[in-house]
Design a protein around this nucleic acid. Structure first.
Lengths: 338, 338
DNA sequence: ATGAAAGCGCTAACAG
DNA sequence: CTGTTAGCGCTTTCAT
């Protein structure tokens, strides 16, 4: 069996209270006893049980990370930065892929509560406000990343989606495109709405017409992007540029274009969003709006941990700026220059 | 405060033992009391504390997953399948990215022990046999995925790397390539050795010369692949085909080739290993050796959980077959046909 | 400076 | 069929 605090106490000839104190470096213990206890702990390869410690009201030092899918490069990258920062601050992270499914989400959250995690970071897109509201009531610290729920008083870290949408569209416009389609993820999700708003504003600022018809909705899969793009390209007088609201969608657009022989970027310009590893590897490399993933992950964890340690009273929203990453899927709209 | 078993007991007018029994569905309890208790649990939104339950010797229903990097698509995909299967069997997974760093690995393992995880799945590549040996001694269930440690009696799920190396090389040979380089991950790691052995055997079976000079070593990063490939392509009479031991490496090779104007596949054929999402998205799409990731993840979890539940006595090795996925980075070696 | 003891929320005999 | 009770390993007053 694993040695317990009793074994250490016995072996060191002290009480368990003393051992506990040296473990936690609390109270006052003589230097000799301290050394002695530490020595015994080493010898017996003793590891305090976090489970037992948590039962007495201390933290579990574990946080939950709710994301749509860990196999999605964008979220995998977020997960990595969350894990790194969490680890640095002494927290392990439990991963929960919800597929944006409301049931899975609830189930996972309930599970995390049972396991008494110290806090939860949420990146999933469901508009599951009730469950979150509930968490809030229970005082379970939560923080949002890459996701916005303005109605909820929670720490949030995200990119300025409106700005991103604006920049993406402006880039396309500056290249001479007159008909620009947008493929959004989900009209009900805030970030999606904001990107569309940015798209619209850019159009209007440049005196171009905003046409509802050009708004297409898909999900966050390659397949989804492929299908929608196929529809768009099959139109009579198809758009010469497509703004895909995430890189995965953009991959789908590239595939769809390739399938019907549409050249990128000469026949069709494409811009994505996220700047995942895919953007630099696909063919041709994708022009996209970059999110500062590392920074975002780092900041949510910091916020959440402060919340956990009750080192702060007010909730915060930190909005980071996205940036345009020009690669090879966008170019002058030569067709219209003829 | 969260309601405890005492709250339920009081509210339902029974003892905590009774409540415990209805929670775990053990012992015999009258139907009425059962209903009553369940009703109260619902009303108070009671969730049994897994922490407390674990302290009494029951499982934590949590497993650790040690991988080099969750942001690496191959491991992210593994993680997803592990998470899904784990979830299905009632286990949460804690993610641990070690960067193949021996210290991080030890630290994470120690942490997982403290948190009393029920078992650990290991996919990291360090030859950290001591730590594992230790785990084995402590009877902590562990299982290996995509990784082989023949000296250790542990459940293992992997692909036949030798076969994969053989197929990859044979494919290249069948295309007429006479000079084939291989970029391996780490000569000390079993899977790497096996892939090289397969490469060598294929060469010999086809009456071709095996040349140590053609074995190059890198890591598992794009950058690493790029650098090594640059070296290879800068040789006097460079290889006409490269077998990159993982997809990431292959991405680097593609980049290196592009940088110096070497056409793929006409000037250079490339084959990867893993068949991650990258393989289908890069440009040109990568011919590669596919690992049945879903199946692998599913099977390790099953093995580990059986081990945890002590439903099996003997350790097992399951070796799955890889398969060749032909895409566009390999073609006839036309040069030599001239 | 150190120890005794109560208690965290739950499980598992053992009684009744 | 249900309740009493003794832990599980640790933290935390409160004495000494």
């Amino acid at each position: 069996m694993k040695p317990t605090i009793y074994d250490i106490a016995r072996e060191a000839g002290v009480s368990i209270a003393t051992v506990s104190k040296v473990i936690n470096n609390t109270g006052r213990i003589g230097d000799k006893t301290k050394q002695k206890v530490m020595k015994v702990m080493k010898e017996l390869d003793y590891q305090p049980s976090i489970v037992a410690s948590a039962l007495t009201g201390k933290r579990t030092h574990t946080i939950g990370l709710l994301i749509p899918d860990i196999a999605n490069p964008f979220f995998a990258e977020i997960a990595r930065s969350v894990e790194d920062m969490g680890n640095e601050l002494g927290f392990s992270v439990m991963m929960c892929s919800t597929d944006n499914n409301i049931d899975k989400e609830s189930k996972y959250i309930s599970l995390l509560e049972q396991k008494r995690v110290d806090g939860i970071i949420i990146a999933t897109g469901t508009r599951n406000t009730d469950v979150l509201q509930n968490l809030l009531k229970k005082k379970l610290p939560i923080a949002l990343i890459a996701r916005d729920l303005p109605s909820l008083p929670v720490d949030t870290v995200l990119v300025d989606d409106y700005m991103g949408g604006y920049e993406a569209t402006s880039h396309l416009i500056s290249l001479g495109h007159q008909k620009i389609s947008i493929i959004a993820e989900d009209l009900k999700v805030m970030s999606s709405k904001e990107r569309i708003r940015g798209y619209r504003q850019a159009l209007e600022d440049h005196g171009m017409e905003y046409d509802e018809e050009q708004i297409h909705v898909s999900d966050f899969t390659i397949e989804g992007g492929r299908e929608v793009a196929a529809t768009i390209l099959a139109e009579n007088n198809p758009a010469t540029a497509i703004f895909a609201c995430n890189d995965l969608l953009a991959m789908g657009v590239i595939q769809a274009a390739r399938e019907i022989g549409v050249e990128i970027p000469s026949d069709l310009s494409i811009i994505g969003f996220d700047n995942t590893i895919l953007a630099s590897l696909c063919d041709p490399p994708l022009t996209t709006i970059a999110q500062p993933i590392q920074d975002m992950g780092k900041q949510v964890v910091e916020l959440l941990v402060k919340e956990i340690k009750q080192e702060k009273q007010s909730k915060q929203r930190v909005v980071l700026m996205p940036s345009l990453e020009v690669r090879n899927t966008t170019s002058d709209n030569t067709k219209n220059l003829v």
